[in-house]
């Protein structure tokens, strides 16, 4: 890896100051994407600002209307959190399906969403559960946050500090895992919100995660059985195509994952 200067601020304020003052600087969260990317020479920042010492960015707590997950909370903590397991079992399950156990020890929710990999898992949950992304400057609704391939609404130097998830009556996540990378070829997050409204969000299928309105409309009719969703078909137009899965296959997988999620709903 090319040499760089490492800053290890203890507060968010100090981290923000460094980001504002320094040229060519990158934020280091869990490093599970950034470090491999730097090893390959695809990113060569002159300075890394590690958030590892900012205690204020860690932890999970219940709050008005939902759950707040600190940006530096590792996936393993979300997967094992009694609070998350009780309130949003689908979110706990999703976190437990990211990467592998060692990746889940280090990788964080803030790092994952700021990176906005189109095949990442969390974006599906954020969109389905009306999440608000809290930064050091403002709150951004999930629907405005994910803009495209590795593109978010974050301004330069803006730091994700936490993610707020709305409560749901029931939630589930089903994912067709890429067998080598563990990323979602297609992942579907399904929730029944406290007012009974169905939410379906899809990741991996397109350049950015999206709500699947046709699936929501079908569920709103009240039949939450997998068989009742056989006719819900995702339009392959605009979906990702790569050597692993073309657009038509991804559209097909979305239907399968939707039905699996309905069966898992808890």
């Amino acid at each position: 890896m090319q040499p760089f200067v490492l800053a290890r601020p203890e507060t968010l304020e100090e981290a923000a100051r460094l980001l504002a003052e320094e040229e060519d600087v990158a934020l280091l969260a869990g490093g599970q994407t950034l470090i491999p990317t730097m090893k390959q020479g695809l990113r060569r920042p002159a300075m890394l600002v590690s958030l590892g010492r900012c205690r204020e960015l860690m932890g999970i707590r219940e709050e008005e209307g939902g759950i707040l997950v600190g940006a530096m909370t590792p996936h393993a903590d979300v997967a094992h959190s009694p609070v998350v397991r009780r309130a949003l079992p689908g979110l706990a399950r999703l976190a437990g399906l990211i990467g592998d156990p060692a990746v889940r020890s280090r990788g964080t929710i803030g790092g994952s969403i700021a990176n906005a990999d189109p095949a990442a898992d969390y974006p599906a949950a954020l969109l389905a559960l009306d999440s608000r992304i809290v930064t050091d400057r403002r709150q951004i609704s999930a629907k405005d946050f994910f803009r495209g391939l590795f593109e978010t609404a974050l301004d330069p130097g803006e730091i994700v500090t936490a993610v707020h998830f709305a409560r749901a009556k029931r939630s589930a996540y089903a994912k067709f895992r890429h067998p080598a990378s563990g990323y979602a070829v297609v992942g579907v997050f399904l929730a029944e919100m406290t007012d009974g409204a169905p939410r379906v969000a899809v990741t991996g299928a397109a350049p950015a995660p999206f709500r699947w309105r046709e699936a929501e409309t079908a569920l709103a009719a009240g039949d939450w059985r997998a068989d009742a969703l056989r006719d819900v078909v995702l339009d392959p137009q605009g979906l990702n195509s790569d050597p692993h899965a073309d657009a038509a296959y991804r559209a097909h997988l979305a239907g399968v994952m939707l039905r699996r999620a309905v069966e898992e709903l808890a």
Binding site: L6, R8, L28, G31, Q32, I35, P36, K39, S50, G52, A76, D100, P101, A102, V103, S105, R106, A180
Partner: peptide
């Protein structure tokens, strides 16, 4: 592999498994 895939480098940091090829030594301070 040195690319965070093979797990030959797994050690426990504070009791948790990590891929030590994908963590800065300074982060284990």
């Amino acid at each position: 592999c040195d690319t965070s895939q093979c797990g030959a480098c797994v050690v426990l940091v504070e009791g948790r498994p990590v891929k030590s090829c994908t963590m800065l030594a300074a982060e284990a301070d």
